[in-house]
């Protein structure tokens, strides 16, 4: 029983990361109708930046906000320079290739600057793990969960309670109408890419102490996050969070309890989830039906 509870808690902790990256994917998807496969590597790059700022002597409390700010600008610039022109000409193959190109370029730039030796990233919260009933959770993981909750609440507030958030939702719902009404459509696009990068950098910097900071750190995570976003419905932020947590728990339980899967085959679980969702319920749990165009 205790093992099961611990597995579920570990699954939820892992799921929080999948959920956060899935949220980034959904933010970009909603405005650009594109799954940005470079999202995870952008996040890893952000974590390297945090590490670098810290290595130069800045405390984490400065290094992390600094790399988050740089990420916002980088995400926004990527949309402006690489994505916008191709979106305007509806060049979907081009967009796919650009995302792959960014992924590969980031991997190589990271390797070139920082090499493949794993970097030691300090924890934000040190100290002995905390007991939750019969289970244990590390302080860093508590911070990670809190960060994800904070991100979710902030996004909810942005979307539901601000004028700009209303424009973001309207622009992703019906772009021509949003243009007719004079909503800041291009600004919502740029902003979404910036925020997606911010979420990635924040989460990647927090998980880096557990995950071995090196090029490609989040490549396996990206796979789970794509599964999470697909499960939740690609255009639903709530779906991304629920999807992330479900994928985290399922992956952990399958790894422990299903004979033959073990730790080596866990990634196949992500693929299995993607395939099952696409076949059984293409719009996911919370997505809008119109999203899936065949």
């Amino acid at each position: 029983m205790t093992v099961l509870l611990q597995q579920i808690l570990d699954g939820l902790t892992a799921g929080v990361l999948y959920a956060a990256i899935a949220l980034s994917l959904v933010l970009v998807y909603r405005t650009s109708k594109l799954v940005n496969f470079a999202q995870g590597e952008l996040a890893t790059f952000g974590a390297f930046l945090t590490w670098q700022f810290h290595d130069w002597g800045l405390p984490l409390s400065v290094a992390l906000p600094a790399s988050v700010a740089v990420s916002f600008v980088a995400g926004a610039l990527m949309e402006r320079t690489l994505i916008r022109p191709l979106l305007e000409s509806s060049n979907h193959l081009g967009l796919f290739i650009v995302c792959l190109g960014v992924l590969v370029t980031l991997l190589q730039v990271e390797a070139w600057i920082w090499g493949y030796q794993v970097k030691e990233m300090p924890n934000v919260a040190e100290g002995p793990p905390i007991a939750l009933g019969p289970t244990m959770i590390s302080r860093q993981n508590v911070v990670i969960i809190a960060a994800c909750v904070l991100i979710a609440v902030a996004l909810w507030f942005l979307f539901q309670r601000t004028r700009f958030g209303l424009a973001m939702r309207a622009a992703s719902d019906n772009t021509p109408s949003a243009n007719l009404l004079g909503l800041p459509v291009t600004a919502t696009l740029t902003f979404s890419w910036g925020i997606a990068a911010v979420i990635g950098t924040l989460m990647a910097s927090l998980v880096a102490p557990n995950q071995f900071l090196q090029p490609g750190m989040l490549l396996p995570v990206l796979l789970y996050s794509v599964a999470a976003a697909t499960l939740g419905g690609l255009d639903s932020p709530v779906g991304a969070i629920v999807g992330g947590l479900v994928v985290g728990v399922v992956e952990n339980l399958a790894g422990t309890y299903v004979p033959g899967i073990g730790q080596d085959f866990k990634q196949a679980v992500a693929f299995a989830i993607i395939m099952i969702v696409l076949l059984a319920r293409p719009q996911g749990l919370f997505g809008s039906r119109t999203v899936v165009r065949v």
Binding site: L166, A170, S177, L181, S288
Partner: peptide, 25 residues
Amino acid sequence: GHVPEGRGTFGSLTVEENLRAGGYH
């Protein structure tokens, strides 16, 4: 004010949010 062919309402927004979008500026 252009009411396009097929109406172009924002289906995933509430009625009130649609109207607020109309008065955005």
